[in-house]
């Protein structure tokens, strides 16, 4: 397995600003890994994503120091077309990412841009429609879709290019629970079926925590915490300090520990928590 993204001592400062937004950040992501990037608003998560995409400094002017590599490509001086083959980004607002007036055209659009022949485009669009579950809606306009469907379409459209890495910048933050479920199911499917490397920026951890390989927590332009979900949440995390909330079940556990209950491990998902709580209750019964 090779390294998908390698960032070495990265410093980023927007033009006209005094402070660096990213301050000496180093991160390595393996191919096929699912990494969750978390942190308070304004801690530099989006800046990091845009730098990996090469949009900083090409489109948004900024001073960039340090090394970034995406496979064997340096996004800081590669052309957008080269980068698009490896890595692609989906933003939180699907509205601005849909650029055509029908679902079919939307998915075909990037393929047409790369000059693919007609039959190949048709094949890939069919395939992607199947994967994201938008079959039968080919001729609908993106404006008529629900929020979840729109975000699925935004993902579908970049998926048709078969990128090796997908960056998701808060993909579910503007969606209702149903839409969130649709998008998260899709992300998990991508990971299962295509082994895509996924870097997701999220505030809500509940849906992802069971599935991610690694959680990276940023604060003030630096990584303050990193590891698999179990390790990250094994110590108490205070939202006031880190800017993000651990899963609610973990918060319950922290509170109970403070009042003297002993936990075998800190639960991170609902099912796990149920098992642990059941265990604790049974124990109490046998003592009393």
């Amino acid at each position: 397995m090779s390294t998908a993204i390698k960032i070495d001592d990265l410093w980023v400062r927007y033009r006209g600003e005094e402070d660096y937004v990213i301050k000496g950040l180093s991160l390595e992501i393996e191919e096929g890994e699912f990494v969750l990037l978390m942190g308070a608003s304004g801690c530099g998560k989006t800046t990091l994503c845009l730098t990996i995409m090469g949009i900083i400094p090409r489109v948004i002017k900024a001073e960039v120091k340090g090394n970034v590599r995406v496979f064997d490509l340096n996004p800081l001086n590669a052309s957008p077309a080269e980068i698009a083959k490896y890595v692609t980004i989906v933003f939180q607002n699907p509205e601005m990412q849909l650029v055509t007036t029908s679902v079919y055209e939307e998915i075909a659009f990037p393929l047409e841009n790369f000059g693919l022949p007609q039959d190949e485009i048709e094949r890939r669009v069919e395939e992607v429609l199947e994967v994201v579950g938008l079959k039968g809606l080919e001729d609908r306009s993106p404006a008529s879709l629900s929020g979840g469907q729109k975000q699925a379409l935004a993902i579908a459209s970049v998926l048709a290019l078969r990128p090796k890495i997908i960056i998701l910048d808060e993909p579910t933050s503007q969606l209702d629970p149903q839409g969130t479920k649709r998008v998260t199911d899709l992300i998990l499917k991508l990971r299962r079926e295509f082994e895509t490397t996924i870097l997701a920026v999220e505030h809500r951890v509940e849906w992802a925590v069971e599935h991610v390989d690694r959680i990276v927590v940023m604060n003030d332009g630096k990584i303050i915490l990193e590891g698999d979900p179990k390790t990250v949440f094994s110590k108490e995390i205070k939202p006031e300090e880190t800017g993000f909330r651990p899963p609610q079940v973990s918060e319950i556990a922290y509170n109970l520990i403070r009042s003297g209950v002993t936990f075998p491990t800190i639960p991170i998902s609902l099912n796990e928590a149920l098992d642990i709580f059941r265990g604790i209750l049974d124990e109490r019964k046998t003592y009393s």
């Binding site: 489109v59 948004i60 957008p80 933003f91 601005m96 007609q118 290019l161």
Partner: peptide, 24 residues
């Protein structure tokens, strides 16, 4: 939003090639 749109067009490879094809 225009900035976001520009980035989205970029990551869809708009302008990547001199000529483009059409699916239909």
């Amino acid at each position: 939003s225009a900035l976001e749109l520009g980035v989205a067009l970029d990551s869809k490879g708009f302008g990547a090639m001199k000529t483009r094809t059409f699916s239909r």
